[in-house]
């Protein structure tokens, strides 16, 4: 029989190995796509409009489509989500049935898969409200999808603000809303921004819901009622319809670069939150 001490050494080695495998998966994925995607990545690729369904040209319209959709979705979701978080943390009583239900539905919303959001967006925004396959339909759907992230990170940020801040503000004669605006929100702001940055990441990567609500037009997106295609949808169609693997790699690489930048910024602003409180 192997002595316990040796057994535990072997076990430790296995744990290290498993952790290394996960790191290995991440790095091989990024490295492989970088190596195959980098040659095709140029200023022209970013700035030129695609032609022949993406076989030629760049991906400029899909980058603009992604930006447009993300901006409109955040414009709709951020005020709502942050207000909900302020209500839940600052106003609702701990035993409130309403707050309990809001928290429960927010958790449920966070767990709903994007394809279900896509179906809902399609039947509600595209058909029922008659908005068609458009940026506004896509952005409204996306807004629902990122709401839980925004609210939850804002809730955590507000919770991390020490209780004494509020008490002192109230003691100085400030009102409740004044206290929230001037005393609670400023130190919580980096946390709220983290939620917004994470939502941008979600918007950049979202595909299934966007295909069903914003369509896949390669035209330059101008008005809110135009159909558009995001970079992720473009990658899907390039790869699945075998349009151009070379361009698919470059698009995938560009998406990964964006996600790495977004993750870095989110961490940076989380650190700020920790410093503030």
């Amino acid at each position: 029989m192997v002595p316990t001490k040796d057994k535990e050494k072997i076990l430790t080695a296995i744990f290290w190995l498993l952790a290394l495998i996960i790191v290995g998966i991440l790095f091989s994925l990024i490295a492989y796509i970088a190596v195959r995607g980098l040659p095709g990545l140029s200023m022209d690729f970013i700035l030129q409009a695609p032609s022949r369904a993406g076989k030629e040209g760049g991906i400029s319209t899909t980058i603009l489509g992604t930006l447009y959709l993300t901006a409109v979705a955040l414009f709709l979701a951020v005020p709502l989500g942050v207000a909900a978080a302020i209500y839940l943390e600052e106003y609702a009583r701990p035993d409130s049935k309403f707050a309990w239900l809001v928290n429960l539905t927010a958790e449920t919303l966070a767990g709903i898969p994007s394809i279900i959001f896509g179906l809902f967006g399609f039947v509600f925004f595209v058909i029922f409200l008659g908005l068609g396959w458009s940026i506004i339909s896509g952005a409204l759907t996306l807004a629902f999808m990122v709401l839980p992230t925004i609210t939850r990170t804002a809730q955590e940020a507000i919770l991390s603000v020490p209780r004494e801040y509020r008490e002192n503000s109230l003691a100085l004669g400030a009102g409740k809303w004044q206290t929230v605006c001037r005393v609670v929100i400023p130190p919580a702001l980096p946390g709220i921004i983290t939620g917004i940055i994470l939502s941008i990441g979600r918007a950049v990567g979202e595909t299934a819901a966007i295909i069903l609500t914003a369509g896949s037009s390669l035209n330059m997106p101008l008005s809110l009622s135009d159909s558009t295609r995001t970079m992720s949808v473009h990658l899907y169609l390039l790869a699945m319809e075998g349009v151009s693997m070379e361009r698919a790699f470059s698009t995938a690489f560009l998406i990964i670069i964006l996600i790495i930048i977004i993750n870095y910024l989110a961490n940076l602003s989380l650190k700020r939150l920790a410093v503030n409180n």
Binding site: A19, I25, I33, E206, T207, I259, I262
Partner: peptide, 22 residues
């Protein structure tokens, strides 16, 4: 490891699908 796992979580599903395909 925590930050690497966060990055893993942030990579969009279509990129994973593409990697799987290729």
């Amino acid at each position: 490891m925590g930050s690497l796992v966060e990055l893993l979580a942030g990579i969009p599903s279509v990129v994973y699908g593409f990697f799987g395909l290729i």
